[in-house]
Amino acid sequence: MVKEIERVGIPVVHICTVVPISKTIGANRIVPAIGIPYPLGDPTKSAEQSKKIRRELVERGLKALETPVSEQTVFE
């Protein structure tokens, strides 16, 4: 799906846990998520902290979208 979005010229960031799969399928802007059962946030922490983690990930995602890349790039 990532590639089809990118193919029509819409920038896309893939926020995902399993970065190698994302690389294999061909996403160009990749942000590593927390974990498979909870990619954006960490429910083992408090609700505020979990949300803060989520906000940081989304901010990193936006930053990736604003960054020029020439090849597959992981925004750690």
């Binding site: 193919r7 896309v12 893939h14 995902c16 994302s22 996403a27």
Partner: peptide, 18 residues
């Protein structure tokens, strides 16, 4: 679905995976 994204003037996509 990309047709719809284009039509709706979407400028960027956040795609999340588990």
């Amino acid at each position: 679905f990309v047709g719809k994204l284009k039509e709706d003037g979407i400028g960027a996509v956040i795609l999340t995976s588990t």
